[in-house]
Design a protein around this nucleic acid. Structure first.
Lengths: 199, 199
DNA sequence: GTATTTACTGACCGATTGGTCAATAACAAC
DNA sequence: GTTGTTATTGACCAATCGGTCAGTAAATAC
């Protein structure tokens, strides 16, 4: 082997990239220190030198994935729509398309989600990410409730934002598990029908 | 030890119960042949005697959980509602309440779901269960589309059924991950607002 | 009664795991 | 050039894993 010496930041990032690749391929259950080391073509002792314990590597990977890849980004194109309903439509379409085309990412996030049910620190992180995701929709929903109060009788912006998350997440996981039977367009149309007709 | 000799069916069921307990407590990742054996207070060789390989034990557990516990049951009380919309309301409320109060079951199913993304036979089973779940809603949605065609413009029964699954699943997993911030009632109200007001 | 099948165990195996550590080579400081 | 500091490795460890197997006692067949 005899790998070249690298500065800490470079090496850490290389290891994280390798970890992401392994986790995407084998699942978090198959994420072993040695597998990551092999993927990065370094000794497994070096992985532990940089991350101390496996637990911290997993945690660092989650931070990395959540912070860099899972972000919900509201583009200028979407933000420019004057009507909240149109923004909602566009955002839903964008997110469904994005997640449907990133099944690996979706799988990984789902696994972290399930893991979060049992491990406190991970749960906190997933929970925060979910809240961030919800808040992006909450703003739109608040506006919708003001401009068209008659449409969603009795609903709150919080409740509607949580439902929006369910729409997107539900679409992604159903498309992930049986891509043949699941029709994304049909799904999106149904959601649109619920929000109300476009004018 | 010296456990009493038991007929095959009794022993198999006892092992499955133990496996369910272990999986609920430690997750599928923590489901080891030895842990199941310890839970059932038998030797770990006996577990392998009855199930051959660990893989088959996990599969048998999934079959058992899906077949016995995860069922969506439409009670007579719900079936008696004359209007499809009322049946939908009641069914959504029932399922959300049920899953919210069975976080362990929900966790386990979520883990199997994530596992299904990588293992073909498990994916097939989860996919089938999902389809069964959807079909229960599809019937109601078809009726809804006939009786009130103006409400969900352009939507199909398939699409609407998939959305209904998202509602319930999304509620369960969001409630599971942060039970403090998540308000089930608010969520249900938002969903109801989307379906349309009760009369 | 004897023979055979069957449920069950303890001991064992090889593989893999996360983690430690002494040795070492590359680098920076002086 | 010498003296640390630091990134890197291979060898090693104890623990745990899934799985096998010979042996055993209980139930069944004859």
């Amino acid at each position: 082997m005899a790998q070249e010496r690298q500065p800490v930041r470079v090496r850490r990032e290389q290891i994280l990239r390798a970890a992401l690749e392994v986790a995407s391929r084998e699942g978090i259950g198959g994420l072993t220190v040695r597998a990551v080391a092999a993927q990065a073509e370094i000794s497994h002792a070096l992985v532990l030198f940089h991350f101390g314990r496996k637990h911290r590597l997993v945690r660092a990977l989650l931070d990395w994935v959540v912070g860099a890849a899972t972000v919900l980004h509201i583009s200028d194109d979407i933000a420019r729509f004057p009507h909240a309903r149109d923004r909602l439509h566009a955002l839903l379409q964008q997110e469904m398309a994005r997640l449907s085309h990133q099944p690996h990412q979706t799988r990984l996030f789902l696994e972290f989600w399930a893991m979060g049910a049992r491990e406190e620190p991970i749960r906190t992180l997933i929970s925060a990410e979910l809240e961030r995701y919800r808040s992006a929709f909450r703003a739109i929903m608040e506006e919708l409730l003001v401009t068209e109060p008659a449409v969603f009788a009795g609903a709150t912006a919080d409740g509607l934002a949580a439902v929006a998350v369910s729409w997107i997440h539900g679409c992604a996981v159903q498309a992930m598990i049986d891509p043949d039977h699941f029709d994304t367009d049909e799904y999106l149309t149904a959601v649109r029908g619920m929000i109300g007709r476009l004018h």
